[in-house]
Design a protein around this nucleic acid. Structure first.
Lengths: 325, 325
DNA sequence: GCTTGACTTGAAACGCGTTTCATCCATTAT
DNA sequence: ATAATGGATGAAACGCGTTTCAAGTCAAGC
């Protein structure tokens, strides 16, 4: 495969001139410009992008770290990132971690190695300290709140979102309130746990540990929740469900087994997935797409200008009352 | 940032020796090995991966071309690809095309530029000839059938899948059968259209063009379908819906507006999404995850060995009869 | 006529790890 | 004792585009 030196020889110019032509720089005579393009044609030349990356020290690639892809939450976030990246001519390199610290470290190492210009962390497992250690190696934007660390972040205010829904349930008279969550670690989960404690505590209700359903990620997990719920001696009268997929699973399975929603069990989902609307589910709308978009925009601005105005941006959530809670 | 030459100086050895140590090659004395690692430590050295890519002419990156990410079908396929890639130490570079030919060309150009070692095309818009023109530039694996082209492909036999469902409906006595599809172009869609023509033709039923619902991709599109269906003078008695999401939308909205499924309208979805099970939907199970996995494995084998045994692999679909059709 | 500035152009260095090839030493085999 | 062999090591070339710097040309300005 021809390289830029072959081109130079063919066109009878220097490599510098070839580079100028290829990159559309001024100060090249029309005839040489033409000669170069003809050589490109003749030798069927294409740039080796790796050489460009090496020479420029930039790649216009950003890494995206996330646990899974096939999940409505994360695929919405990537979609948002991707949409923006496309518009700016950036490419996305995926780092699926399955929430394994080892894999998260791999992604960070890649940042060090200059494989990409920056990294967006959609969700993580490792301690923030680990991420902080790579701060010098390239811009990192987080999609989760990192209290006590001055990372650049865009995040959904899950405390507020959770608190909002909880207060709504309290106002409706619920006192036995549980919740379903994907995992218990992670800042988002902790924020929700804090809201749960705080809000229930404020009215003197003691949270019941067995009313917290862990590992709720997908639709089918909703079925499990209903089954466990039915087995309980003391059942919660309302559930906050941190994913509409799971909430939908709950609502649909409840229907099947004859559990009345919301009379026997009120359900409030999160996300405002189209499914929530379709099922008439009360839900807290979370701006996932916007989260991805903003995360990318922040990173982009950082990359282009070297600094950014604000380091944290909080995206609001809003309760949409429909019929299940 | 230190480079390999700095390391060599620091450790008092040649760059070749440094490279040997860094890559774990034999024939380096223990003392020099130690000296190099100490220099690595001292200078806080990390490889520049771009330089490695350039020098090796390989990247261990594969590109994934797909129209959208936030869609159950595609996110399942990437998940499959990602899972396998992770195991083999490959990375994924995303090319979201929105089905724009321009973007597809960009991805192909990147392959030419050696940004990645190979490309997996999940779905496309451009003519196969366009892809064929890049055959010399790197391995391309397709996830759609490409009749008349000897690409390396793994695909779901949509003709058979569609035909299977249609015959089932015919057996149940349906004669007014329509279908909902994401888009009408593309090999998958054409295969389905052919099956539709052939199977209905075989029993002398004339397909009605207005019973083909285009642009059905997401849950909410199901609502539109029901609305249009209700407006029809002559209504189909059964619908094949090429996505369980849309089928679910149809079933759920039908429920809301009092259309009886399957009495008034039989619905057969595709994918066997968890949602289908949850809703008791008859559906044709499509192995999306396996498709992604196999596509990657094929590409991987190609990359590692330089040739592959079979160029096409057809994945079967199977009808799962539940309650909606 | 001479300076100045705009325009052209190319040699060479640079970014950085990999790999080949030649060299040199110390053993073994003959 | 000598040749052959295995091990260790470095110089230099290689992959390839970008960028800097010096130099040369030519027309406008004084």
């Amino acid at each position: 495969m021809a390289n830029i030196r072959d081109l130079a020889k063919e066109a009878g110019v220097s490599v510098a001139t070839v580079s100028r032509v290829l990159n559309g720089y001024p100060y090249v005579s029309e005839e040489k410009r033409k000669a170069v393009w003809e050589a490109v044609e003749k030798l069927n030349y294409t740039k080796n992008i790796q050489a460009v990356h090496l020479a420029k020290g930039k790649t216009r690639i950003v890494g995206v770290m996330l646990p899974y892809i096939h999940h409505p939450y994360f695929s919405a976030v990537i979609e948002g990132i991707s949409k923006e990246a496309l518009g700016c001519g950036y490419q996305l390199l995926l780092f699926q971690t399955n929430y394994e610290v080892k894999r998260e470290l791999e992604a960070l190492e890649r940042l060090r190695m200059k494989q990409m210009d920056g990294l967006i962390v959609c969700s993580h497992e490792a301690d923030w300290e680990v991420f902080a250690a790579y701060r010098e190696d390239g811009p990192i934007v987080l999609c989760e709140r990192a209290v006590g660390h001055d990372f650049f972040t865009v995040y959904i205010d899950h405390y507020q979102a959770f608190a909002q829904a909880l207060r709504y349930l309290l106002d409706k008279g619920h006192r036995r309130i549980g919740y379903c969550i994907g995992r218990t670690t992670g800042p988002n989960s902790q924020a929700r746990a804090a809201a749960y404690r705080d809000v229930l505590g404020s009215v003197g209700v003691i949270p019941q540990p067995q009313w917290i359903f862990d590992g709720c990620l997908f639709l089918e997990d909703g079925k499990r929740v209903i089954e466990r719920w039915m087995d309980m001696k003391e059942r919660p009268s309302a559930l906050l469900v941190t994913s509409d997929q799971v909430a939908a699973g709950i609502v649909l399975h409840a229907q099947r087994v004859g559990v009345h929603i919301p009379e026997e069990l009120a359900v409030i989902g999160f996300d405002n997935d189209p499914l929530a609307e379709m099922l008439g589910m009360t839900t807290v709308a979370l701006p996932h797409l916007a989260l991805g978009e903003k995360a990318f925009r922040l990173l982009h601005q950082w990359l282009e200008t070297g600094n950014v105005p604000r380091t944290q941006e909080e995206l609001p959530a809003r309760l949409i009352v429909r019929m299940t809670g």
